[in-house]
Design a protein around this nucleic acid. Structure first.
Lengths: 186, 186, 186, 186
DNA sequence: AATGAATGAGGCTTCATTCAT
DNA sequence: TATGAATGAAGCCTCATTCAT
């Protein structure tokens, strides 16, 4: 739905406090009152915006590669590429703007994050089982490292306005290098 | 100032949109109008809250250790410990709530982030120069890994409400293991 | 626009400080907040009120009479008649209420005054050129005499609440008598 | 009283809406609350300001000259000179700022005006009785001409910010010329 | 469905006035 | 008398939501 998209664009680009019926109407090209012909109230609009974000983030998810690190790479690079294409939208996933807008519906936002997180963790655990990564490292910590790197990239890109974003493959290369290096060490 | 503290507490705990004069007054124990005898307007309150946050985050900064990785460890563990003591406040540093509240004063928020970032990068570069970490890895990427891990921990802790937070030293151990492992590999 | 009219009515009748959104709403028959669906803010309302005043004052302006004193008479009597019909509105033109309400838009108010003033002066200069008034008298001073008489009439009428206003033609007759008398004298 | 003076200065210079306890305190050099140690409430302050204005305007009043036109001249020139010395204060006499500030005490302001007006009228009537001015002219109208000229001068000076004010004697000369010219005419 | 005026609550801010110190 | 924090009532303005057209 156009309105959900517009809502997501506004929230992530301008902030929750700019998500008003008027602004939405202007963005979509309808009158302010008309917005409520399509959605019962603002909460419903925010829910739709979150659903829209989830759709964008998890299109083609999960990746099909059988190798856990290749699968993780695919996910990771995909997300960074998405970030470069749709910086605002991607940033929204890690921002708390959505969460604030969601009000009572925080679980909706949370599920987006947990879904990614669970996937990353699963890949890492498999990689450890296959001896690709040192087994001694806590998969929970490794998960925060991987997710965090995505997050920090979104952060730098969107918040600090970094000019030339890093190449997604290069970023992954560094992560993978570190992950597998731990094995040699032991 | 009591009000600045209360403002930071509200922003990071309940969100920007709950930072109202009434809420602030209630938190401090004064009437809403009285707030503006101490601050010209809301923007000034937010500025004070940001300054307060900066004070908390950078108390005893930068760490004095001569070894770059020890210095980084000190910073990293310190931040994670802070997070466990003051989850809301710490989370605020990475959230965009403050930034939204700051309005025109975004540079204030940005400077907090850039200061940490520059420190982390400097430690990593020194470590590379001293041969502790593989020189081939981009310091910018490594910086996002380290900062991102902090960020993801704050995220998990505050947003997903993880019950038992990880031990700061354990988290650092994993990072350091990965960083130095890259050297052996080459 | 109804609101502009009401605003002018309130400002000139009760004073700037009574021009509140509530009062305006009451006058027009809408809620206070609704006022701002039609005008961005109070300044815009005041601007509209001034424009409305200008429209009322300069309807059919300038008079078409070819003789300068006849033209001036027409203007003068017209203004005094207007004063008797719309005392509040007319008074507003000379009051500083409007100016205070206008805030930054003082030029709008000033232009109303200067326009009348320039017209009066022009008539007097022409009359001097045609030998109807002694050439020795400063046109600037004469202008203040004519404008001032209007002003003082508005003042008496509105501020001192004079019961029976003077007849506009009689007032003009006195002025004209004095103006042309100066010629004989020389 | 210093406070009364300051109040008059503020009202006539900056407008009623700037007459606040804080502004008054700043002007006089005391704290805002202290203002109410000297005056019961704001209305009392305004009353004092009006009394102060009356004192300034009517110092040495009425002039002692026996000739009515000389007496009027003395008054007229005196007022214009006052205007050039204290533009704000003088303007206040004709402005409605004071009246707005006075609220319920409008009679106080009115009496200032009526006192001047009665004096001017008296001079003119005497002049007519002595045959200095044509008897046919309505003294009420003549009074508005004289008072109005003062008013218009204050207006030009203060409101339109005219750079070089007219010479008081020149202005009076024009008025007197016109007044006495009417006699010859008959 | 669409419109846009209207409502009314809520948030920011100012200020006269009070009062403990 | 002086101070200045505190109060509480307005006033401005925004916005979600409703509703007649």
């Amino acid at each position: 739905m156009q309105i959900a998209e517009a809502a997501l664009r506004i929230i992530s680009g301008k902030g929750v406090h700019r998500l008003t019926a008027q602004e939405l109407g202007r963005e979509v090209g309808i009158a302010d009152g008309t917005v409520f012909r399509h959605f019962k109230d603002k909460a419903e609009i925010v829910r739709a915006a979150i659903a829209h974000l989830e759709g964008v983030l998890f299109k083609g998810f999960p990746p099909a590669e059988p190798e856990p690190l290749a699968r993780l790479r695919s996910f990771f690079v995909g997300r960074l590429e998405l970030m470069q294409r749709l910086p605002g939208v991607f940033f929204a996933a890690f921002s708390d703007r959505l969460e604030e807008a969601a009000g009572d519906d925080r679980p909706l936002v949370r599920s987006i994050i947990e879904r990614s997180q669970a996937f990353v963790r699963q890949c890492l655990v498999e990689a450890q089982e296959q001896g690709l990564i040192a087994r001694s490292l806590s998969p929970d910590v490794l998960t925060t490292v991987v997710i965090g790197t995505l997050q920090a990239n979104a952060f730098l890109h969107h918040r600090l306005g970094v000019k030339s974003p890093m190449n997604p493959n290069d970023v992954w290369q560094v992560i993978e290098t570190m992950l597998v290096a731990t094995k040699q060490k032991t």
